[in-house]
Design a protein around this nucleic acid. Sequence first.
DNA 1: CAGGCCAACTAGGTTAACTATGTTGGTCGC
DNA 2: GCGACCAACATAGTTAACCTAGTTGGCCTG
Lengths: 119, 119
Amino acid sequence: MVKKTGRPAYLQIADDLREQVRGGSLAPGAPLPSTAQLAEQYDASLSVVKMAVGILRNEGLLIGQQGKGVFVRDEESSESGQVTAVDLVSEVIELRTAVRDLSQRLARVESTLSERSDQ
Amino acid sequence: MVKKTGRPAYLQIADDLREQVRGGSLAPGAPLPSTAQLAEQYDASLSVVKMAVGILRNEGLLIGQQGKGVFVRDEESSESGQVTAVDLVSEVIELRTAVRDLSQRLARVESTLSERSDQ
DNA sequence: CAGGCCAACTAGGTTAACTATGTTGGTCGC
DNA sequence: GCGACCAACATAGTTAACCTAGTTGGCCTG
């Protein structure tokens, strides 16, 4: 693999994996080959594979579970590939709510902890 | 820099830079300090700074020009008419990371609580 | 002075090695 | 059989080193 186009290898691999996910070749929830296996498949070093996976992980397309493997994200919201502004706005609203909720829970639990610790 | 939260350094730096851009501390078109200078500022290695910049470059927030420097994306340089795509994406990413961070802290603290309760 | 050359910067890509941490499966002792 | 332990494998993060390539400015030569 890794054609001799100017495109860096880690982007080529990321593109290829993204294509496989979008094309259904890698089904949602399915595990990817291990980093070492991917490195051998693409005839690339471990580092570039890790970078490629890191990008897709950052994009939310893949989910890495330490000690187990890397899996295609299971949700169905990733189908279009093109994210619309409406999707983003709604996600922002959802996330803001989630942040507020988590902050409140955290504050409550942490205060409980400090009370116990103070005694 | 690089607080001792569980959050990896390259994400902390990426968050910080993203915040500076969104907050206007780094104006559009303005150059970032060089990789070496950033590494010194954050007391981090060159590698993590490069990773952080790479993420923001991938997000479209920063534009790297080989031999010159890294610049905050200029509104006019990607005139698609819609101002907000990158802004929304950055905010979504910020919020997502915030949610993840809060969830981890919450889980850790709650497990501590339950341990104490069990005994 | 003009032009070219070169050294010193810059970002970007690649690789290798090391650590940390989580999961899993097998083996060994009881 | 069961539990503890351990080795092998997994992702994840960090660091260091090396290479490419573009830019800039100064110096030196003609």
